[in-house]
Amino acid sequence: MPNQQKKVIFCMAGALSFVCALGVVTALGTPLWIKATFLCKTGALLVNASGQELDKFMGEMQYGLFRGEGVRQCGLGARPFRISFFPDLLKAIPVSIHVNVVLFSVILIVSTLVGTAFFMYNAFGKPFETLHGPLGLYLLSFISGSCGCLVTILFASEVKIHHLSEKIANYKEGTYVYKTQSEKYTTSFWLTKGHN
């Protein structure tokens, strides 16, 4: 491969790796991972609501890895709420899974930034074959991809298997019981998944 073509390819790969790191950092900071709707089961059963009446008992929320917000409705008007995972929800969520999602997200950011540095070094420097050459780039790309997959799998299992949305909706609710009706992954989840 000619030297100029090699520089262009490594520069483009380095720029793409840097954009990926910025995308993951942005995704971590936003509460746009999950959007969920939930039903106030207690209130709907009390008044035997059905059809259009159920709309008065439907709430919604959106949350990310660190914070979220939503509106609870139980027939008496909207009650907005805000949540933060640290320290508020530590007793309600599966902490070990959530901390692992954050940890692997940080490793993903670090590995993509190191990958960026190695791509640029390969483009403009004289790399050593072991870590700075193609093997090092393959290794860092594999680590980044693995961490992205782990973040996706762990967060999806936290949401689906451990019913995270329901736990958040029912947090500090003594009287009413909320049941999740729908959940969908939003922008930040797909942004993180896209950087595998």
Rank of each mutant, 00 (worst) to 15 (best):
97 I>A: 10
67 R>E: 12
26 T>G: 13
137 L>K: 03
29 G>N: 13
59 G>P: 03
123 A>G: 04
82 R>F: 04
134 P>C: 08
164 L>V: 00
154 L>R: 03
185 Y>F: 15
138 Y>A: 15
79 R>I: 11
37 T>L: 01
148 G>S: 13
4 Q>S: 15
104 F>V: 03
143 I>R: 10
147 C>S: 09
102 V>L: 15
183 E>D: 03
4 Q>H: 14
193 K>P: 09
68 G>M: 02
26 T>A: 15
74 C>S: 11
116 T>W: 06
137 L>D: 01
32 L>V: 01
37 T>H: 13
169 A>M: 05
65 L>R: 04
161 I>F: 12
145 G>V: 05
93 I>P: 06
47 V>T: 12
133 G>P: 00
132 H>T: 05
188 S>Q: 05
72 R>E: 09
123 A>D: 04
159 V>L: 10
22 L>N: 03
82 R>Q: 09
141 S>L: 11
125 G>V: 03
74 C>L: 06
38 F>L: 07
107 I>K: 01
104 F>I: 00
112 T>Y: 14
67 R>V: 04
101 V>A: 09
31 P>I: 00
168 I>M: 13
182 S>L: 06
152 T>S: 15
185 Y>E: 08
30 T>S: 12
105 S>A: 11
143 I>C: 12
191 L>S: 11
13 A>V: 00
143 I>W: 10
111 S>G: 02
68 G>I: 00
53 E>L: 13
190 W>R: 07
138 Y>W: 14
113 L>G: 01
26 T>N: 14
121 Y>G: 06
130 T>V: 09
48 N>G: 07
128 F>Y: 10
101 V>M: 06
108 L>E: 09
86 F>S: 08
91 K>V: 07
172 K>S: 07
114 V>C: 13
154 L>H: 02
154 L>Y: 07
76 L>C: 06
192 T>V: 15
58 M>V: 09
186 T>M: 14
110 V>Q: 09
152 T>L: 08
133 G>Y: 02
107 I>L: 15
160 K>R: 11
99 V>D: 02
165 S>E: 06
1 M>N: 05
156 A>P: 00
59 G>C: 04
78 A>E: 14
29 G>S: 14
117 A>K: 11
66 F>E: 06
132 H>F: 14
165 S>H: 02
170 N>H: 01
